[in-house]
C-alpha cells in the first residue's frame, strides 16, 4: 500500500483552560493521501482547531502519534503551512514582505524570492497591492495574502483553519471558487476546517463530521468518489449547489450535525 501522507494514530489531545485540563480530541485515527482535499466539519468547540493544531505540530497530543510520510511530527515546520481564520498577517510587514517571510527562512536567494512572491501574489489576484500594509486591505484580501504566504512557502500540506469564517457571504463564495481553482492549479494535500456544510461539500474530496467535545469522528464521506460528479471543481459554486446530489448530501450532513448540537446542548 502506498504510504499515507498524514497518519494520525489513536490521537487524543487535551488543552488547559482555567487550570483545568479538558479533553478536546478523543482517540481519533485518520489517514490522508497525497493530493487529497479533506474537510473537517463539526459544531463549535468540537476540537477541530485543536486537531489541526496537532497536525501542525503546535500542540502535542497526550496519547497517540501523528506521522507525516512515516515520520513522527514533533513540532511546527514549514512542511505544513497553516492558514488561520484571523489571517495572522504581520501588521508591520507589507503584503510583499508577508508573502516573502517563510522563503527567507528556507534560505532562498533574494532574486528567486522575488520571483516566487510575484507568482503567488498574482495567483491570489493581488497584483498592485505588494506595498500595502495589511490594515489597508479588506478581510478577503487579507486572507488572500495569508493564502499566498503559505502557498509560496511550498509546504507539502496546507492546513486551513476556518479560513473564510471571518468573511461576509459574498466574499466567501468567491474565495471558495478561487481556492478550488488554486487547488487544481497546484495540487497540494489540504486539510480544511469549517462550520459550513456547503463549503465542506463544495471543496472536499472527503468530508469528516466531528462530534461535539470531546471530538471524535462521527462519519467520513467520500464526496468525490461516492456522491458527486467528480469534475465539480470545474463548475462554479452556484452550479454545484444546485445539483441534486449536493442537496441530498447537504441534508444528510446537516442532520448529523444538528443532532449533535441538540443532543449535547451546545446551542
Amino acid at each position: 500500500m502506498q504510504q499515507d501522507k498524514i497518519f494520525a494514530d489513536h490521537v487524543s489531545v487535551a488543552y488547559e483552560k482555567d487550570d483545568e485540563s479538558l479533553l478536546a480530541v478523543d482517540d481519533v485515527t485518520l489517514s490522508i493521501q497525497e493530493g487529497e482535499f479533506v474537510v473537517i466539519v463539526g459544531p463549535s468547540g468540537c476540537g477541530k482547531t485543536t486537531f489541526m493544531n496537532t497536525l501542525a505540530g503546535l500542540v502535542k497530543p497526550i496519547r497517540g502519534k501523528v506521522f507525516m510520510d512515516g515520520k513522527q511530527i514533533t513540532g511546527p515546520s514549514a512542511e505544513r503551512g497553516v492558514v488561520f481564520q484571523q489571517f495572522a498577517l504581520f501588521p508591520w510587514k507589507t503584503v510583499f514582505e508577508n508573502v516573502e517571510f517563510g522563503l527567507k527562512y528556507r534560505g532562498i536567494p533574494k532574486d528567486e524570492r522575488r520571483e516566487i512572491v510575484r507568482k503567488y501574489i498574482r495567483m491570489v489576484k493581488l497584483e498592485g497591492f505588494e506595498n500595502s500594509f495589511p490594515h489597508e486591505l479588506s478581510g478577503g484580501m487579507k486572507q488572500r495574502v495569508a493564502i499566498a504566504r503559505v502557498y509560496a512557502n511550498m509546504p507539502q500540506i496546507l492546513l486551513m483553519d476556518e479560513p473564510f469564517g471571518a468573511l461576509d457571504a459574498q466574499t466567501r463564495t468567491i474565495m471558495q471558487e478561487d481556492l478550488s481553482e488554486m487547488f487544481m492549479m497546484e495540487k497540494r494535500t489540504v486539510v480544511f476546517i469549517t462550520h459550513s456544510v456547503d463549503e465542506a461539500i463544495y471543496l472536499g474530496d472527503r468530508v469528516i463530521i466531528m462530534t461535539a467535545r470531546p471530538g471524535k469522528f462521527k462519519k467520513i464521506i467520500n464526496v468525490t468518489a461516492d456522491c458527486l460528479i467528480p469534475n465539480r471543481r470545474n463548475l462554479g459554486y452556484d452550479d454545484v449547489v444546485n445539483l441534486k446530489a449536493f442537496r441530498d448530501l447537504k441534508r444528510e450532513l446537516w442532520g448529523l450535525i444538528k443532532a449533535e448540537i441538540v443532543e449535547k446542548r451546545i446551542l
Binding site: 488547559e16 505540530g57 503546535l58 500542540v59 502535542k60 514533533t74 513540532g75
Partner: peptide, 14 residues
Amino acid sequence: MSMKAFGPQFLERI
C-alpha cells in the same frame, strides 16, 4: 524535542 520549551513564555505555564 519538547514543544513546551519552544516559544515565548506565554505559551507555557510553569
